[in-house]
Structure formats: structure tokens, C-alpha cells
Design a protein around this nucleic acid. Structure first.
Lengths: 348, 348
DNA sequence: TTGTAAGCGTTATCAC
DNA sequence: GTGATAACGCTTACAA
């Protein structure tokens, strides 16, 4: 007579105990075979356990494992927005690096709310991850830094690792791109192409990484003997950049040779605005961004930008997240300009 | 004398027991106050516990909670690629819906490998999620369906829910867009605009959802009395679409009025190919896609496509994932055409 | 209402 | 080598 157990929700999961009993060994022995490190188990037992596990379709209960071991194989990643090309690329890279060393990644999204970030960190702490990686930026509300720091400190005190990506506002390990150098090189290349009268679209938010992009660009222009650009502090978004461009007068626009935005997202917003204003890119004005997001593949003309080594930051972040050194350092990943069709050589 | 405990990794996490002791009550009482449902705790105790928890910075150990309760508040989401705009938008929507009802989402990525998907499901099962949502499509290797089904069945038998998005290849609850109707409406609208000689870019993979888009489009053209289009089965990617377009002869291209690709990703690849071939869009040929991915915001000309109600599928998927009805059904979310600048009215 | 005790699935300690 | 036994942090009968 066949088993009556077929509908959903009937059986309970197969446990290690089931496997052990089925194989005729003790629970610890089964554990040693299936999950343990020091493999001092007789070959005969070993095989029996393995066979039993396969037969029964055993899967270790990870939460239980984590509890017993006192440490999990999960790292938590906090980002602003998953649908943003920059963040999704970053998340992808982090997951890749993490999975390469057998770590799970649990992703949480702040939707640009600092308050939510605090809640998330609290919640994540409850998941008992091995590390928390904060990669969010560009908050729309004032961050309650102290509470966040307190929460993260508490987490660290219990053995958790905290790693920040592209945000140096907090006293934890930080990994970032070489924003200053990337922007500076870009500015030099563009100045070399003849772009001297530039507009720089920055942001009002005090985000060091983004500040550095502005400063680097200005520095690069100076290095090249080009004049100081006009620098504007906008809201950190596509719309912010577009709206600002739309607010410029015709005279102001006519006088410009280039618009550089500190992110591709903003550059694309500016591009849209410029076109709405009737300008042709690149004939009438050049445009450049930063990040080299995947969207650029489908944008015409191909956008000049600064490529950031996502894989390098991801690798470094995962390394920091899993290695226990006590030094608090700030590491940097390469960022280098990629000149494309949106900024052809200027022939006066 | 201040506490010596300052370096990382020194203390152990604050447990419920700590809180209870600190508040001078028993563990169960603390549990009832902080996490329990039936709140039959004296107000005085209640406050003491709450205060203690805040003081100590207590966060419930979720894995422990899940183990004790026998059920977690996590759902696992399996997708192909996180950096793909379609999937990242889908993931974002799922997370949003999930978080709205207090569920965590754990994301895993197959990178288009069916084999990896099987491994992932096995691993995820170990995480003891409340549900597993499979939203991956377009595998590059032959899927070992039976093993996957077995694994999912086992999971279901132990009370887990399985939900499929846009893939009906497996005998589980499925939610999908109304692909046929969306493509059909699009074809009708385009035929109405004068587009009769069309090329349809489909895929070789036997994916029902994508098949339906092809069939719906063909049907729509027929409805409108337009001739049957040329239908091609390509590899499921931007590059596949571009390369195919590049392989067409000039005569073939000249004869076409429209290229419809079953995804925006492929449509953008085709667009790139067409441009490389020297055609202007939309003057020389129209282009249309499917999905209405966010990338389209920055593409010129604005691409005609079929908008899919991601929020609706996400909502439905989460609903299925959390509701225990035994009927195996196939639900459908709206998909409707959005005609944009890439397919202007044809004036012969 | 509150506390005691048992149990969730696993690993670690320690005798055998 | 192997198997009892005690944790891990929490919830849930059940008893007080």
C-alpha cells in the first residue's frame, strides 16, 4: 500500500536525526559526515550516511546550523534601490564575489530613506549575518547618524563586520572608488579635446564620494589650464539634472561646451533636458557622466563617462567583510575615463 | 572605571534571557511582550521589559525564532540575473510587496544556468523560507526538470509554497502576464498605423510566455488583415537580436516596415543592429519591444513596447506565496501596448 | 497573569 | 572513531 502522504504541508522536513537513524548511526556521526570539517569517520559509515541523506533528500537546516555554530554564512547588503542600474550592478558583483566563497547574500533596500536604513540594520542584525555591507547613498531625509552608528557598533561588538561602500560618513571600514582621480583624468582628457567652458552638475547632499568627483573634475580642468567651471548643487537624480538644464537661459546654454554630471543617471537627465532645449549632442554641446552604468549600451550618442571597477570594490568589500583585521582603513578601487561619442574633439 | 569592553568581537549578543533577567521577569514573559501575539502581560511588567530591551539594544535572533516557531518570515526569490533591468525591476517589486507584509526576501541568482538553479533551490530549502518564488527564464543549458520538480515537491511537502513567474514549464502555481493579449493589441495598433510587413524576433528556447508573445503578435496582424510576418527564432539576448539583424541582406531590410522583438532587450539589440546597417529609426523602419523596461527612459527614439504590470504579478506572487489554497491555477496580469516615437503612423 | 519545562535541528564537548 | 549529553535563543504547552 503506497504512502498516503502526498498533499502539501503534510510531512515534516527530513532532519539530521532521520538520516542518522536511517543509516543506523548516531546524530553526531551523521553530522560529521555531512557538514563537519574533521572527517574522522569510518568509510563504511560515511557511505551509509551519504546514501541515507540522498535517499531521504536531506538538506541541512541552515538556521539551526547557524545557531549551533554561533556563526552564519550570510552577509547582509543594504542598498538604496535595486532597480537603479548602478546599485543592481553593484549588488550583482557583490553576490558573485560572495557566492564564490560560499556566502549567501541577503539584500535589503532603503529606498533612499535614512530612517528605513536604521530599521533595516536593526532587523538585519537579528538575522545574525556575518557582516553588514552598507552601499546606500543619496538619502532624501536627514540621516540620524548617531543611532545608526550605535546600532552598527553594537553589531560589531558581538563579532559582526561592518563595511561601507562609497560613504565615508561613518567610522567604519570603507571602500570606495578613486573618485577624485577618475574625475580629474576625465577633465584633463576633455580639456585636451578642447572643452574649456564646462558646467558641473553636483549635488547638495554632503556625500564625500560625490564631492570628490566635483573637486577632481575642477582640479583636472585647472591642471590643463582650462578655466574654472560653473558648479551647481542639485538634487541627486535624473529629474534634478534635467530640470536644472531646463531652467538655464538660452545665453547660458549657448556659452557652454560641456556638461559633466557626477553620475551617469544625472548625465542622462541632463541629456534629456538639453535635447528638449533643442540642442544637438554632441554637435552643440558635449555631455559626460560617471559610473559607466549598463544603460549606456543603448544610449545614442555613446556617453563619455568614468568607468568604475565594481568588481574590485565588491571583492574588497567581501574581503573586509570576512577578514578580521582591526585596522580601520579606507581602500580605493580604480576609476578611469572612457571617452566616447558624446564628447568628440572640438575643432574651433 | 569605564568598561574595558570596546574592541570588536568581545561581547556576545544580547539575548532574550538577558532582557528578562535585567527586567526581573521570566523569559517567557519577556518573549510575550517583545514578540508574542496574545498580549496578556501586566502593564508594569510590560514597560519594564520594553525598557530593558531598549536599554540593552536587544534584537530578536531571527533564526532562533524561526526554529522555535517552525516557520520563518523569509521568502526566497530566484532570478536569472540581477543586473538585467527586467529582473531587477521584478525583484524590486517583489521586495516591496513582501516587505509590506513584513516578509524578508532572500535573492539568489542563477546566471541563466539551470543546473545552478537546482543547486540554489536545494540550498534555499535549507534556509527554511516560507516560500520559493522562481522568476528565472532563458536558460543557456538544458534544464534537468525532473530533479528540480522533485526538489520543489519535497519542499512543498514540508509546508513550503512554490510560485512560478512567467514560466509554465513546471507543475506549480504560476503567475504570468497576459502575453498573448498584450502582443495582439500591440500588433493591431501597429497594423492600424500602417505597419504590415513585419519581422518578429522570437527565441529558440521553448518558453511558453515568449511563444505567446510571438503568437499574439501574429494573431493581431491577422486580425487586422495584415500579412503574416516573418518569424525568426534567435538566441535570447541583445546580441542575438543584433547579430541576426546584421545578417540580413539589404533587400530583406529594405522590404521591412517593422521589427518586433519579444523583449525590449532584444529590441534594443535589433535597434543597434539596424543603425549599424545604416537605417534610421523610425524614418526607415519601425521598432517595437515588450516589457517596458526602465532603460527605455533614455533611449531615443522612445521605444514602442508592451507595458507589463510588474506590481500586479508581484502582488499576486506574494499572495500565492503566503496563502495556502490547494488549487493549482494560472493567473494573469495585464500587459498593454504603449505606442511611442519608434513607430509613428506610416504615411505611404 | 506568570513561571517551569520541554523542544526546535544542529554542533561541540567529552567520555568511551 | 563513535556516541551520549549539553548547549544555541527562542516559543509554547502546561502548571502554578
Amino acid at each position: 500500500m503506497p504512502s498516503m502522504q502526498s498533499g502539501p504541508g503534510s510531512k515534516r522536513p527530513v532532519t539530521l536525526d532521520d538520516v542518522a537513524r536511517y543509516a543506523g548511526v548516531s546524530q553526531p556521526t551523521a553530522s560529521r559526515v555531512l557538514n563537519g570539517s574533521a572527517r574522522k569517520v569510518a568509510e563504511s559509515y560515511r557511505e551509509r550516511v551519504l546514501a541515507a541523506a540522498r535517499q531521504l533528500g536531506y538538506t541541512p537546516n541552515l538556521p539551526a546550523q547557524a545557531m549551533a555554530r554561533g556563526t552564519s554564512r550570510t552577509v547582509a547588503l543594504v542598498i538604496s534601490l535595486i532597480s537603479d542600474p548602478y546599485f543592481s550592478a553593484m549588488a550583482a558583483e557583490i553576490m558573485k564575489q560572495a557566492e564564490a566563497i560560499g556566502l549567501h547574500v541577503s539584500i535589503a533596500v532603503t529606498e533612499r530613506h535614512a530612517e528605513r536604513e536604521l530599521d533595516l540594520v536593526r532587523e538585519l542584525r537579528g538575522q545574525q549575518p556575518r557582516a553588514i555591507i552598507l552601499a546606500g547613498t543619496g538619502y532624501v531625509d536627514p540621516p540620524s547618524e548617531q543611532d545608526l552608528v550605535d546600532e552598527l557598533r553594537r553589531y560589531e561588538e558581538t563579532g559582526g563586520r561592518v563595511v561601507l561602500i562609497s560613504r565615508s560618513d561613518l567610522p567604519f571600514e570603507t571602500v570606495d572608488f578613486d573618485n577624485h582621480e577618475g574625475a580629474r583624468s576625465l577633465a584633463r582628457e576633455l580639456a585636451g579635446l578642447g572643452y574649456h567652458r564646462c558646467l558641473v552638475l553636483g549635488i547638495a547632499t554632503p556625500l564625500l564620494s560625490m564631492q570628490q568627483r566635483v573637486e577632481g573634475f575642477v582640479q583636472g580642468l585647472r591642471d590643463s589650464g582650462a578655466g574654472d567651471p560653473r558648479v551647481e548643487q542639485l538634487s541627486f537624480s535624473w529629474v534634478g539634472a534635467r530640470d536644472f538644464v531646463l531652467s538655464l537661459t538660452d545665453d547660458e546654454l549657448r556659452d557652454l561646451q560641456l556638461v559633466f554630471a557626477i553620475t551617469d543617471d544625472m548625465a542622462l537627465g541632463a541629456l534629456d533636458g538639453l535635447r528638449t532645449r533643442g540642442l544637438r549632442i554632441p554637435e552643440d554641446i558635449g555631455v559626460a557622466g560617471f559610473d559607466d552604468i549598463s544603460t549606456l549600451r543603448d544610449v545614442v550618442p555613446k556617453l563619455t563617462t568614468v568607468h568604475v571597477a565594481l568588481n574590485a570594490v565588491a571583492e574588497e568589500a567581501i574581503y573586509r567583510a570576512t577578514t578580521a583585521d582591526t585596522e580601520l582603513t579606507r581602500r580605493t578601487a580604480p576609476a578611469y575615463p572612457v571617452v566616447r561619442a558624446s564628447t568628440p574633439p572640438l575643432t574651433p
